[in-house]
Amino acid sequence: MIDLDKVGAHAWRDASGVCLPGITFDHGYRVKARVIHERDQFVRGIEPKDFDMF
């Protein structure tokens, strides 16, 4: 059973999760989350930050 409180994006939290069955680090897959600043959604200037999810 997937705990819906632990997956997806949540406001005011510093953690996020995603369920990708069969996509594992051991099989050579890599997943990154790209986070953009709220002020830079449509205007260039503040670069997004990439975070490895493993």
Score class of each variant (00 low, 15 high):
Arg44Tyr: 11
Ile36Leu: 07
Ala15Trp: 15
His10Ala: 11
Asp40Ala: 15
Arg34Lys: 07
His37Lys: 02
Val43Thr: 13
Ile23Pro: 02
His27Val: 07
Ala33Gln: 08
Met1Ala: 14
Gln41Cys: 06
Trp12Phe: 15
Lys6Val: 09
Asp26Val: 00
Arg30Ser: 15
His10Asn: 13
Arg34Ile: 10
Gln41Pro: 01
Arg13Val: 11
Asp14Gln: 14
Pro48Ile: 00
Asp26Lys: 12
His27Gln: 12
Asp50Pro: 02
Met53Ala: 14
Met53Trp: 12
Thr24Tyr: 05
Asp14Ala: 07
Ile46His: 12
His27Ser: 10
Thr24Cys: 13
Ala15Phe: 14
Arg44Pro: 05
Gly17Glu: 05
Gln41Val: 08
Pro48Phe: 00
Lys49Tyr: 04
Ile46Pro: 01
Val35Glu: 05
Asp50Tyr: 08
Phe42Ala: 10
Phe51His: 15
Gly22Lys: 04
Ala33Val: 01
Val18Gln: 06
Ile23Gly: 07
Phe42Met: 00
Asp52Ala: 10
Glu47Ile: 05
Ile46Cys: 09
Thr24Ser: 11
Lys32Phe: 06
Glu38Ser: 11
Leu20Lys: 02
Tyr29Glu: 03
Glu38Trp: 04
Val35Asp: 04
Gly28Ala: 06
Val31Gln: 04
Arg34Val: 11
Asp26Met: 09
Cys19Trp: 08
His37Leu: 03
Asp14Gly: 13
Trp12His: 14
